[in-house]
């Protein structure tokens, strides 16, 4: 393993991503504004129809803050543009050149993914601060320097978990021509079960132990709940431990699939 090489890949990727400014701002401003306006409408409709002032422990402002931070967290965790990178390398034969690198393929790709996160992290800071200023901080939300530090660690773990969760799915490309549908299907499922569409606190109580045992809650729900001060230190530590366990499991799975896939790989490409 060569940390200097991985750092170089990280910084090249970060500079590349930040250079596409127009696309970046159309995407970020437009996409966030639309998603937020839809969620704002749903939240207000739900509170006014039910006549409640609090749903699943959130006030209107608390729920809006949850959604904004979940969306921003989702952008960092998913790092969209490299979601299909591994499957594409397998499909078009670009994987061959990585086989010559003195570092494992998964590590190179992860360094690229981490470098590609610079725009999303910038969005997170800018829009996160703007949301806090515009919406305000309701009583049930407690953001402190401690929760921010815990959030950063949870976010790093979530990003790694998401990467390792997608890698085995992408490795199906060794046997199938197109795994785009599988990746998109996993995005749909993780969005709901991970708390990106709605806070998991809104799910029925019987489903919570199941959701806690699955890896998805640690992608979006845990980091955001930690940031908003809605998870205790014990919950945070347990969550990180479970996420680390899933990361370990997925790395064994990917190692096994990768070994079998390499036997299939021809390097011919399309």
């Amino acid at each position: 393993m060569r940390p200097a090489l991985l750092w170089h890949i990280f910084s090249v990727e970060a500079r590349k991503r930040m250079s596409y400014r127009a696309d970046f701002w159309i995407n970020s401003l437009g996409g966030i504004a639309v998603s937020f306006s839809v969620f704002w409408a749903i939240t207000h409709a739900m509170f006014s129809s039910s006549g409640k002032t609090e749903i699943a422990g959130y006030s209107v402002s608390g729920m809006l803050l949850y959604y904004i931070f979940a969306s921003l967290t989702g952008r960092v965790v998913q790092s969209n543009e490299v979601e299909l990178a591994a499957s594409q390398d397998i499909y078009d034969g670009s994987l061959s050149r990585y086989l010559l690198y003195p570092v494992p393929y998964a590590a190179v790709k992860y360094a690229q993914q981490a470098g590609g996160l610079a725009p999303q992290i910038l969005q997170m800071i800018v829009f996160g601060i703007a949301a806090l200023l515009l919406i305000g901080i309701p009583d049930e939300i407690h953001i402190t320097s401690g929760t921010v530090a815990m959030y950063v660690l949870s976010l790093a773990m979530a990003n790694l978990l998401h990467y390792l969760l997608l890698l085995p799915i992408q490795a199906v490309a060794f046997w199938a021509d197109n795994v785009w549908s599988l990746v998109v299907a996993s995005r749909f499922a993780t969005s709901l079960l991970g708390g990106l569409l709605l806070p998991l606190d809104m799910f029925p109580p019987w489903s919570r132990p199941i959701l806690d045992a699955l890896p998805f809650a640690y992608l979006y729900s845990l980091p955001v709940r930690v940031l908003l001060g809605r998870a205790s230190m014990a919950e945070w530590a347990t969550g990180l431990a479970i996420a680390a366990g899933w990361c370990l499991l997925f790395s064994f799975v990917i190692r096994w699939i990768w070994r079998r896939g390499n036997l299939q790989y021809t390097g011919v490409g399309i």
């Binding site: 409709a45 039910s50 409640k52 749903i55 709901l192 809104m202 029925p204």
Partner: peptide, 22 residues
């Protein structure tokens, strides 16, 4: 499979919302 999951996610989304409002 992707389309089946999309349909399930959408119906579940509304089902969860209606657990909190009529």
């Amino acid at each position: 499979g992707m389309d089946i999951i999309w349909n399930i996610v959408n119906i579940s989304f509304f089902w969860i919302l209606y657990q909190h409002t009529p």
